[in-house]
Computed example of a mutant assay.
Amino acid sequence: MSLTDLKLLTVLAKEMNMRKAAEKLFVSQPALSQRLQNIEKQWGTKLFIRSQKGLMLTPSGEKVVQFASETLEKQERVYEEIRALETHVHGTLKIACASIVGQNWLPKVLKQFVTQYPHVRISLITGWSSEILKALYEGEVHIGITRGTTDWKGTKYPLFKDSLYLVDREIQKIEQVIETDRPFIQFKSDSNYYQEIQDWWHRQFQTFPKRSIVVDQIETCKQMTYNGIGYAILPAITINETENNIYKIPLLDERGTPIRRDTWLLGYDSAFELRQVQAFLDVVRDYSKDQPVM
C-alpha cells in the first residue's frame, strides 16, 4: 500500500463519513469510493460498511486502520530524523502542556520559538499534569510541561516557581477569611494541587469554608473572583498585575515561607536528541533568564 492509501484509511476511520473524508482528502466521493474498493481488493476483505448514518469499521478494518496509523507514525519519525541531519531545524515539535501554563506562559515562549525556527511545525495538547504524563508515557509527544511534584524518571528541567495567593476584592488579611460569609471559589485540578490547598487551609483555620463554589476552569475561577463574587487561591502565573482593587495575600507554610508551585519540562533522553526539541529547550532557557521570580 502507498502512503496515500494509508492516509486515506486513517481519514475515513476518523470521519466515518465519505463526504467529509473526500473534502479532507481533496478528492471527489466517486474517486474516493473507487480507491477504497481497490484497497479492499488488495486486502481481500471488507474494511468499511456503509449505512445511512455513515461508515462503520469491520473487525478486519480495525486491524488494517491500526496498521495504517502505526505505519504513518513510523514514517513521520523517519522524516523527523532525516530533517535532524539538515542545517535548518525542521520537523514537528510535539508538546503536551499543563493548561494553566499553556494559557499564561507558553504563548510567549512559542512566539519567540516560531520566530527563530519558522520551519518547525507545532503540535500542542493541553490538560491536567496527570494527562501530560500519560501522553509522555504513551509516546504521543516529545516533551511535557507539568506542574507540582513529579516522579518522572527521565530528563527533566525546572522552568519556574510561582507563589500561591489568596485573591479577593475585599479581604485584605488572612484573618478576615474566617469572618466572611462570601464563598471560597475553587477550580477543579490535579489531586496534588487540591491536596496542597487543603493542607494549607486546615493548618491555617482548622475548619472548612463556610460556603464554596467549584468551577471547571481556573479562568472561570479568576473572573468570578475579579468580579467580586468571592475569594480564591490562585497561582501568580494567572494574576494580572494591572488589575485594580485586587488584594493578594501570599500563602505561607508552617515555617512562614511562601508556598510556590514548581513547573517542569520533561521528556525522554531520545526526544532531546531531535534538533527541534533541543532548539525549543534553548529558547526556553533564554526566555527564563529574563523572567522575575513570581
Rank of each mutant, 00 (worst) to 15 (best):
E80L: 11
Q112R: 08
S163P: 04
K41A: 10
R77Q: 15
T242M: 07
K94I: 00
N104M: 00
E15T: 03
K248Y: 07
N192T: 10
V65L: 12
F113L: 08
T207K: 12
K210C: 06
L266I: 00
Q52M: 14
E140I: 08
H202M: 09
S189D: 08
T155K: 04
A279F: 02
K41C: 05
N38T: 12
I171T: 07
A135N: 11
T92W: 09
L106I: 11
P258V: 08
E219P: 04
E73K: 09
T87S: 15
S2K: 07
E73M: 05
L266M: 08
L164F: 05
G44T: 14
A279E: 03
G102F: 04
Q195H: 15
A22M: 09
H90M: 08
V284Q: 01
V120T: 02
A13F: 00
L32V: 05
F208L: 13
N245G: 12
V214Y: 08
E219W: 00
L93V: 02
E179V: 06
A13L: 02
K153Y: 06
R285F: 01
N245V: 06
G148N: 12
Q103H: 05
S270Y: 11
G54R: 01
Q198P: 01
L25V: 01
T92I: 12
L166N: 07
A98H: 05
E86K: 13
T257G: 07
M224C: 10
K7Y: 01
Y137T: 14
D199Q: 15
L57E: 09
T242S: 15
T225C: 13
Y268L: 11
L265I: 02
I39M: 01
